[in-house]
Amino acid sequence: MSDQVTMKVWRGDTDGGGFHEFAVEAREGEVVLDVIHRIQATQANDLAVRWNCKAGKCGSCSAEINGLPRLMCMTRMSTFEPGQPITVAPMKTFPVMKDLVTDVSFNFEMAKRIPAFSPRPPDADGKRRMAQRDVERSQEFRKCIECFLCQNVCHVIRDHEENKQHFAGPRFLMRITELEMHPLDTGDRIPLAREELGIPYCNITKCCTEVCPEHIHITDNALIPLKERVVDHYFDPIVWLGRKIRRKG
């Protein structure tokens, strides 16, 4: 079983570009990435697209499909209205390199700014013990495949380029929560989250959660708790008093 479909694929580079129309075959069960690959193999050998696993595990093939941020490998062709053209565009928040490939180095720069995991000493017998229910909180965030769709869709940076200086985006704020909730970690990254990486900018519109292909509850389980910890740290009178006293001692 196969159909002819019309794909409108954005092509261009740093100097600009536009949508190019391709008439191409789509076979049963295929995903958008299969069809993009067919265009590449048969009509446009130099069509630039990032991909690796084609199984939703590596987070390389992020794009905006009919305007929605998705993984091309996990978007089945059968979910589209037959006969309607399908548009595929690069992620908007990051500068275009070529065609569907964007410069995502912002994310790798942000990752460098988060202080590493620093564990407490092991138990007396040299082993480390943690309860399953305690590791599960951070495990949810470690499902992240770094597709950067949450970064792409977060309007703090999507619509305000200037915010990229002081807003790490949902992926890396979640990473801070992950370390905060890690049962063994001793670091304190709350001041960093507030003062340099911009957690106060987040106004919990949940756009990140909606596009997460791993279905991580980014807003509810990572960003809101991080905001709460910031509030506790800076504004809770008891915590404030305790810190004041400890500092004197």
């Binding site: 480390r128 943690m130 309860a131 590791v135």
Partner: peptide
């Protein structure tokens, strides 16, 4: 494996927490 844990990996646990 234990070294990975030292670097932050969160493996599933046994009932004893190992």
């Amino acid at each position: 494996v234990l070294e990975l844990e030292e670097w932050g990996a969160l493996f599933d646990r046994t009932k004893e927490g190992l």
